[in-house]
Amino acid sequence: MIRLENVNKVYRTKTIETTALSNINLFVPKGEFLSIMGPSGCGKSTLLNIIGLLDEATSGTIRIDGNIHSNYNSKAVARFRNAKLGFIFQSFHLIPDLSVIDNVELPLLYRKTSRKERRRLAEEALESVGLKNRMSHFPSQLSGGQKQRVAISRAIIGKPAILLADEPTGNLDSVMGNEVMDILLRLNTEGETTIVMVTHDQNMAQKTHKLMRLYDGSQVA
């Protein structure tokens, strides 16, 4: 499903060259739940961004669902992200001026989905995270855990094959964190969604199928 071969990422300025990722090799089969751990600044988020085609590797090959995207133009990459990938961010990244349901509908705006169908799917996605009664609320009216559940609904509404979660429980207390983690586990087991999650939390990581450790941009386990 996800295959990375000899992936490197180097940030260059006129005077400094910083290696963010060095020679990363990774294979995540369909339906697997992988967690990535490591200290701050070790390149976890960079790796997740590269897997999610939000950032480009300096060298190496990235195959997602069998496709190599280095030759795709930005429009084709955007289309692919929309169809195959879902994102969950640590700080939720909900749009404050849109209601909960409008936030959830967002990925479908970039597909040819009718307004009626968008509504139906958004309601369904919100119901799956237990937030159907908060559809017309605005993000500022929700708790952290609720915001993250809305973000999960937004990530899964387009039924993506791969979910990429960047510290989804990082901004939540342990109860809320566990709730969110349970939802992710359910999506993985029931929906066979492949999930790659960056986390600092050993307990959360232990609940996943596989753990990858990064240190200073290199794979250590």
Binding site: L54, R81, H93
Partner: peptide, 13 residues
């Protein structure tokens, strides 16, 4: 950041 989210979820330029 809204632009970032929209792009992440498939919005083209």
């Amino acid at each position: 950041s809204e632009i970032g989210v929209r792009k992440a979820f498939g919005a083209s330029r």
